[in-house]
Design a protein around this nucleic acid. Structure first.
Lengths: 108, 108
DNA sequence: ATTACATATAACCATTTGGTTATACAATGA
DNA sequence: TCATTGTATAACCAAATGGTTATATGTAAT
């Protein structure tokens, strides 16, 4: 199921997404843009499909890959929200720092 | 190197970061909060350190882990920028869709 | 029908990941 | 000094990842 971090966790996959940002592409076009083998690209595409970041349509012998823009946006929004939540409450954090710090002080 | 995707790619690591959001913690405190072994936690912390999402200070026999807010902020901004570009590209993408679509049409 | 091309799949390999248990090392406290 | 406590490290394991080559399949073109 949709594991954003899995989908976006590999630089090749992120590059593929960059390609698809500009235009839909056949698998062949994607393969040609990289220095790795067709099966390797296929595996990346499979992961992107599994995580629903991309979809494919059949057109004759071609597979046309399309960026699922909404999913990608949601994916990034999820990560942004997570990181944002880690970030925002610095006052609260400072307060706890003082408290916890006291508990840990050398008592000898 | 700072690979945020690697750092955040594991749910246990995300939980650790959640803990550190509230307050700095010793490794011991983190270990106690989970059901997995101390060496397992240590490995997660090592990855978070490698990716510079967290830093550690020595205090006697304790290791105190702290969220590295600056790294997180940088990551946050990079992602924002990336997704911003994505949105900007949507019109361009639509234009290319029409063009590329033509090239691929059945010619028989 | 045969060939050529795009894609799919199988079998394999090395590395990384996420966990374990056992053990060593270092600081603290009695 | 000796036991305890917190951390580090080693050795191991299973599964996933990212790649390979070789080969099969499906579609199109001649």
């Amino acid at each position: 199921m949709s594991d954003v971090y899995r989908a976006l966790g590999d630089p090749t996959r992120r590059q593929i997404l960059n390609m698809l940002k500009d235009a839909d592409r056949t698998q062949k076009e994607i393969v040609e843009a990289f220095d790795i083998s067709q099966p390797a690209i296929k595996k990346h595409l499979t992961i992107l499909l599994e995580e629903n970041i991309v979809s494919a349509t059949i057109q004759g012998k071609y597979r046309i890959y399309t960026l699922n823009q909404e999913s990608l946006q949601i994916a990034y929004q999820e990560m942004l929200k997570y990181i944002g939540d880690l970030l925002d409450d610095q006052l609260e954090s400072l307060k706890n720092y003082v408290e916890k710090g006291e508990e840990r002080h050398d008592k000898s």
